[in-house]
Amino acid sequence: MDFRLTDEQSDLRAGVRNLLAGRYGREALRASVDSGGALDRGLWRELGEAGFFALRLPEADGGVGLGLPEAVLVFEEAGRALLPGPLVATHLAAGTVPGAAAGTAVVTAFDLGGLLVAHLAEADAVLGAPLLPAGEPVRSADPLTPLHRAAAPGNAGDALGPYRDEGALLTAALQAGSALRTVELAVRYAREREQFGQPIGAFQAVKHLCAQMLVRAELARTAVYAAAVTADPAEAAGAKLLADEAAVRNARDCLQVHGGMGFTWEADVHLHLKRAWVRAEQWRTAGEAEELLAAELLAAAE
């Protein structure tokens, strides 16, 4: 399978990266953290105007008319930039919830299992379910992902059935983007930080850490791209499994490369780790992905 991007796909990825670098750079990221994770509605509308949410809608319906392979490229860049908000749910709702495609509506989902919902207090709709009042706030590991407990039937997550595979894959793309970004952060710091008169990147232990991070990130990205081409549920589950591991372990190894500096609030590495923890519980957990893959393997062996 050839995963080389077309010129149009390369231009799309570059365009999204430039947009996010200009609109959601480090200063904006830190401002979001300082605000307690409040969603920037202006940014949300700009994403809508840029076609982020309507990417896969047919042109006849006001969309961009692209496919799942292009969507994972866009979400990979969003993960790299740590762009906050219920991006996946709003993207999946673009064809059914008024305002979602244009970015004038924020759509969340029961994608965390149980009754926990991200950004519920700011949402205009819930994917596949009625909008419910935001109940008790729940402490979130990620300062940019506010959580609330909703008063709803325990089977509210069942409404995600038609969306779960694509939701898991797009979340995997976010995780892959984060994993790739932490590789960049680790390598940059290893080049700049000196110990004993030389960059720490010259030390074998640091080289090994960075090499392992790159392998994990590229493996996850390849799995995400493959699942986007085949649209196979088992491959989407496998991609989510690999991307979750890459995002979490790469963030931890990036902290190791940074040493004590990486554990400070001023460093961005901890934000990648905390976001990776939350995403690992969204749409399809590791246990759920493993169960789906095991069922597929058993069916193939019969």
Rank of each mutant, 00 (worst) to 15 (best):
Gly99Gln: 02
Gly99Pro: 01
Ala100His: 05
Ala101Pro: 02
Ala102Ser: 15
Thr104Arg: 13
Ala105Tyr: 06
Val106Tyr: 02
Val106Glu: 04
Val106Gly: 03
Ala109Glu: 05
Phe110Trp: 00
Phe110Asn: 01
Asp111Glu: 14
Asp111Lys: 11
Leu112Trp: 02
Leu112Ile: 02
Gly113Glu: 09
Gly114Thr: 02
Val117Trp: 08
Val117His: 06
Val117Ser: 06
Val117Thr: 08
Val126Asn: 03
Val126Leu: 12
Val126Phe: 02
Leu131Tyr: 03
Leu132Asn: 00
Ala141Phe: 13
Asp142Phe: 04
Leu144Glu: 10
Pro146Phe: 06
Pro146Lys: 08
Pro146Gly: 07
Leu147Val: 10
His148Cys: 02
His148Lys: 00
Arg149Trp: 06
Asn155Asp: 15
Gly157Trp: 04
Leu160Lys: 07
Leu160His: 06
Gly161Phe: 05
Glu166Ile: 04
Gly167Pro: 01
Thr171Ala: 14
Thr171Lys: 03
Ser178Met: 13
Ser178Pro: 00
Ser178Leu: 09
Arg181Gln: 14
Val183His: 01
Val183Cys: 06
Val187Gly: 00
Val187Thr: 12
Val187Glu: 15
Phe196Asp: 14
Phe196Gln: 06
Gln198Ala: 15
Pro199His: 11
Ile200Leu: 13
Gln204Ile: 07
Ala205Val: 13
Val206Ser: 09
Val206Lys: 05
Cys210Ser: 06
Gln212Asn: 14
Leu214Asp: 10
Arg216Asp: 15
Arg216Trp: 13
Ala220Lys: 11
Arg221Tyr: 01
Thr222Asn: 11
Ala223Cys: 00
Ala226Asn: 09
Ala227Tyr: 03
Val229Asp: 01
Thr230Ile: 05
Pro233Leu: 11
Pro233Lys: 08
Pro233Tyr: 10
